[in-house]
Design a protein around this nucleic acid. Structure first.
Lengths: 148, 148
DNA sequence: ATGATTATGATAATGAATTGCATTTAGTCT
DNA sequence: AGACTAAATGCAATTCATTATCATAATCAT
C-alpha cells in the first residue's frame, strides 16, 4: 500500500467512511494521470481504460481527496476545476501558457517570505495562497514572433 | 465627461459600437459601487435605484468594460465573477478573509520583480498575474482566538 | 429622416458541479 | 457465515452563473 493510499484510508476510517472499489479505482487513475487533471478528463480516461465509474462519483471522490489532504482543487480560469496531488509534493505555484495551455510549476521561497511580510503588515493570517502567472511559454512566444 | 467615460467611448467608437443609455447607466452605477462587485449585485443595486437594466445587459456591459481596459474580472473562489475598476488605478493584489469575505488590496513591488525573474528563468512572457492570499483578517482572527 | 446595424430584454440554453433517490455495497456485530 | 446499519453508487434531475437566441427597439452615419 503506497503512502497516498494510506493517507486516504486513514481519512476514511477516521470519518467512518468506506473503502470501495470505485474509490480505489479513482485513486489509482488519479495517481497515474497527468497533473492538473479535470474531473471530466479523469472520467474519460477511466472509461477508456475500462475502469469506468460514474461522473458524479468522480466528483465526489476528488472532493474526498481534497478533504483528506491528498489533492487540491485549482481554477485556472477556463471554467473547469483542476485537481492536483499535493501530498508529499512540495508547495509550488504556476505559470500558465494562454496559448498552448501548458502549465509549468515553480517554487520561489523569496516570494513566500514577502507574502508573509504583507500578511503581517495587514494583521492577516494566511492559510493558503494562489499565485498564477499568465502569458506565453517559450515555444508559443517564438511562434508569435515568427508570424508577425 | 470623466476619464472612464472617455475611455469607454473611445473603445466604442473604435469598434463601431454604440453609446446607449443602458451602457451609461451601468458605467455610472459601476463607478459608484464598491470594488469587487458581482454582476448580480450590480443588477440589484440598479434595480433598487430605479435605473434598472436587464441582467444579460449587465453581463454584456461588464464584459465590454473589460475589453475596453476599464475593468478586470476576478475569481475569488466563491463561484461568482467579480469586477473591479482598473483604469487609472495602480496594480495591486488581494488578501481575502475566508470568514467575513473582506477583500484587502495591497501592492508589493518586490514580489512583482521576483515574478519577472521566475518568468525569465522559464523563458516565459507574463501578460498578467494573479496573487491571492486567503486566510483571516485581524478582526476574524481575534474572534477565533476568543471562542477557543 | 432614412436605413443599416447594433443593443436590449426576456427567456431559453449551456455547462460544470451537486443532489435526490432507489439500489447496492461495506463493514460490524453476533 | 448471516444479518443489520450506514454509507456509496449510478443515473437523472437540479442548481447556479453565465451566454445565446431572437424579436423589437434604439443609435448614428449618411
Amino acid at each position: 500500500m503506497n503512502k497516498e493510499e494510506e493517507l486516504l484510508k486513514s481519512h476514511i476510517s477516521r470519518h467512518n467512511l468506506k473503502v470501495t472499489k470505485e474509490r480505489s479505482a479513482v485513486l489509482r487513475a488519479f495517481l497515474a494521470s497527468a497533473r492538473h487533471i479535470t474531473a471530466e478528463e479523469l472520467y474519460r480516461k477511466m472509461k477508456d481504460e475500462n475502469s469506468s465509474v460514474g461522473l458524479a462519483t468522480i466528483y465526489r471522490t476528488l472532493n474526498l481527496f481534497c478533504e483528506s489532504g491528498l489533492a487540491e482543487q485549482r481554477q485556472f480560469g477556463d471554467g473547469q476545476a483542476r485537481y492536483e496531488l499535493v501530498y508529499n509534493v512540495s508547495h509550488h505555484d504556476h505559470l500558465i501558457c494562454q496559448e498552448c495551455k501548458r502549465i509549468i510549476e515553480f517554487q520561489n521561497e523569496e516570494i513566500e517570505v514577502l507574502q508573509e511580510k504583507v500578511a503581517k503588515k495587514n494583521h492577516f493570517k494566511i492559510f493558503s495562497h494562489k499565485l498564477e502567472l499568465y502569458g506565453l511559454c517559450s515555444d508559443c512566444s517564438k511562434v508569435q514572433a515568427e508570424t508577425k
